[in-house]
Design a protein around this nucleic acid. Sequence first.
DNA 1: TGTTAGCACTCTCAGGCGCAGAGTGCTAAA
DNA 2: TTTAGCACTCTGCGCCTGAGAGTGCTAACA
Lengths: 346, 346
Amino acid sequence: MPTPVLDARKHAVLEAIVHCYNRTAEPVSSQKIVRDYDMGLSAATLRNTMADLEELGYLMHPYTSAGRVPTEQGYRVYVDRLMTNQKLSQREQQFIRDRYASSRRDFEEIMEQTSKILSAISHHIGVVLSPELHESILHRLELISIDSEHILAVLLMASGAVKNQVVSIPKNLSDVELYRINRILNEKLAGLPLKQIRQISRDPLKLKAVFDQHLSPPITVVTQKAFALEQETHVYIDGTSNFFSHPEFGEVQKIESLFRVLEQKEQVADLLSVRQKSLGIQVLIGSENGCEGMEMCSIVRSSYRVHGNQFGTIGVIGPTRMAYPRIVSIVKFTSQTISELFEESL
Amino acid sequence: MPTPVLDARKHAVLEAIVHCYNRTAEPVSSQKIVRDYDMGLSAATLRNTMADLEELGYLMHPYTSAGRVPTEQGYRVYVDRLMTNQKLSQREQQFIRDRYASSRRDFEEIMEQTSKILSAISHHIGVVLSPELHESILHRLELISIDSEHILAVLLMASGAVKNQVVSIPKNLSDVELYRINRILNEKLAGLPLKQIRQISRDPLKLKAVFDQHLSPPITVVTQKAFALEQETHVYIDGTSNFFSHPEFGEVQKIESLFRVLEQKEQVADLLSVRQKSLGIQVLIGSENGCEGMEMCSIVRSSYRVHGNQFGTIGVIGPTRMAYPRIVSIVKFTSQTISELFEESL
DNA sequence: TGTTAGCACTCTCAGGCGCAGAGTGCTAAA
DNA sequence: TTTAGCACTCTGCGCCTGAGAGTGCTAACA
């Protein structure tokens, strides 16, 4: 259904109510708008407009004689059409850059730091999804002997990520042989995306085609096991306790349902993962996220580019009543900064 | 001060009250004890005994005419002298073993799994501190070239732990040279505890003594940087949302202060870390943990042995009103199991 | 026709009151 | 030493009430 077009006054009133409600967390009365926003209208007129907006589904009444509160639909209109894109202040931009600068340049550290930055600056929950390794390109593979039955495969990805995988080998491989296998694997597989390497490892024909006369049982085993990482994406969460300061989460059950979701990392990963991979911002308002227990939360998310075709996601989870322009600008700037950070390090 | 010795009746009454309060979370009345525990005494007599126990500081009154609640001191006596050591049921022992068996045998996985097991079986918060690497013995070091300015140092510890460290090298090292350094470092440093390696790396005289004529600027740099890991111990926490089901945490502020502590991993690490390294159980009751915001929580902790002189800690954090015998048996069995697990894998 | 002032109406919220219930402490008897 | 009985105390709940906030409606006004 096409959203009806609102006239200028309705726009202005809706915007004022969203703005006011975001600040106070209390239903907004017509009086309040007259006092705080210079609209040149009386309370009575505002009440008429507010009644119209309510009929359109953009506002609601907690009870007969309370002020108005924006509905999810109201927030939707606000986010899509009303709010003005705000730029992060120089001070805040600098804050983010400083935080990155002071951290080690190692992959995990950047991920962790990002979730901390997001939560610190937004005062909400900061979430970071590490990129799916599937698309990631293997820079180099190193095999290290642990004992007679195990070797450690160290996967150096082009993005700078490092993954360790213990591989149990059936036959006792000599150091010389291991070194030889290592060399062949690098020769044949380095530079390929993990996705492709996995396809190769699963298909005997492809294995034969790639390794040719070098193909041997140990190579098959190592190729199959070294690249089969269990935990594909890691979830970094910070700032959960920020939720306690929001008055709408004053009752335990409301915060409980949220925390039960946050404890399940897979669920958070689903919540954040973006379908189309672009640097564009996405805003999910309230129950739009489709997650039970998170009806009162909104999510602002964006993907970031790590390397080539490889994307991760960052996001902020806050109450539906959040300062959208500000949070959007934070997520946008951070995803850009982190993308640049990975660009540099290549 | 020596704790006064309690006669048999006082013991029995205190134990009954602790037991009853742990089940109901409500002040225990004399009536309740008459009904639920067959002590062969009337309510009036129990009231006298309870008044005595209160005077001794083991019980308290929320208000004049409510039932009794154990004080921290009361719990202390209960834990130290009254409670009978309970053994984990066969079914629960099997549950724990199964969970370990189904997980990969990799170090991180074991740590993570342990915190999950602890919380799942205790219904409280499970915490695991990875062992301090300081005491850990270097099994092998592998240097991998990333680009002209960086190498990756892979530290294989004797415990099975693997640590990666990116080292920036000032001079462009050839592959041959890197290989040579790698060989020398392994020759000289493998088998030594990290602690000792760090002492060597900081002291030019010791460096000279160890490496002799092989000592070169690149070796000094790599030795200094590769072993200077930032994050010594990792903290694994699971089951935080279990706290929502406890009636004493029905108000947000109480749960808030707890969660604010839990978000600070360093603080949790301090809370858990055990001074004397032994497999003995330690119980901290209520404010004994000395942590602001955790006055209503008790901690049951124990260290586990990973390898040689190297210890980590596991623990359960729950409300002061927890089933101590059960939790103690859980922590005890888990720490033994995890120690055996590492024993085997060597 | 759109805007505004006025007013009656509605609903919340905080405080006060009273009452039932639970549990104690004390006293006196067994 | 134990127990029965009883007065006393404190909580928790429901109820009521009054103040306050905010609306919707109506009638007057530009």
